[in-house]
């Protein structure tokens, strides 16, 4: 094979190598860069437009969802507040109705009655005086919780509270402002004087912690209905 022919072939091979190289590089670059570099201007504009539209849609969606989120949060907060209020009210009502034990500052009043001359009326008076002085929870002898439905009746040498006999000495415990309560008992012409006039005696002790553990029987109203 003449030398000239070999050289020609080598040159052709060289050029083909360049071509192959370029093809490979271009194919690789096309793979890597995706569709955008080869796209025309109008296509790119269209692409941009559709992206803008999608962006706008997404923005609107975000706004909507955030509004929904805010609404839900607000309603959740409202629900929580309502629940909190309902719980507090339930606690208040439970104390008033005497269905839960209560503790707090108050007074313990001991009434000695050797002659058995203390009547239900006197006891009712005592309770009324304490209520007037702002007593929030009252019990007698650790057994009878005094609530709105409580009734007093005279028994045989004792007092009947809510149908259960309570015997002297009577220990009335009341939660409220200790000073106010003790003044309510001992003011001239008040409970203390009344009891002493009947031949009994009264001892009042103020305490930082009075525990009222007697519970009243909850009775569902049989006749009364909530008025519309």
């Amino acid at each position: 094979m003449p030398e000239r022919k070999v050289r020609g072939q080598v040159i052709v091979a060289l050029l083909l190598a360049v071509l192959g190289f370029a093809v490979a590089v271009q194919v690789r670059a096309q793979d890597r860069e995706g569709i955008y570099p080869g796209a025309r201007r109008s296509e790119l504009v269209q692409l941009l437009d559709s992206l803008d539209a999608a962006n706008l849609r997404a923005d609107r969606q975000i706004a909507e969802l955030e509004a929904t989120k805010r609404e839900l949060q607000t309603s959740t907060n409202a629900t929580q507040t309502a629940q909190q209020e309902a719980r507090e009210e339930a606690t208040t009502l439970a104390i008033l109705a005497g269905t839960v034990a209560a503790t707090g500052p108050g007074v313990a009043i001991e009434i000695q009655d050797q002659k058995g001359s203390i009547s239900a009326a006197t006891m009712l008076n005592a309770v009324e005086e304490l209520r007037d002085a702002g007593a929030e929870a009252i019990e007698v002898n650790d057994t009878a919780r005094i609530v709105a439905q409580t009734y007093f009746a005279d028994g045989d040498g004792s007092i009947t509270i809510d149908g259960a006999p309570v015997r002297p000495p009577y220990l009335i415990e009341a939660i409220g402002s200790p000073q106010t309560l003790s003044v309510a008992v001992s003011f001239p012409g008040g409970l203390a004087d009344e009891v002493e006039a009947l031949g009994g005696s009264v001892f009042v002790a103020e305490a930082d912690a009075i525990d009222i553990t007697a519970l009243s029987q909850q009775r569902a109203p049989e006749y009364a209905q909530p008025a519309p």
């Binding site: 052709v12 190598a17 071509l19 190289f21």
Partner: peptide
């Protein structure tokens, strides 16, 4: 020899994997 050259070129392009200069991109 030319066929070998072509194959060598393709192989070189695939294995070296150079990035096309920006100025050349429209012309390649």
């Amino acid at each position: 020899i030319p066929v070998i050259g072509l194959l060598v070129g393709i192989a070189a392009g695939l294995f070296l994997d150079p990035s096309v200069p920006v100025a050349l991109q429209p012309y390649l």
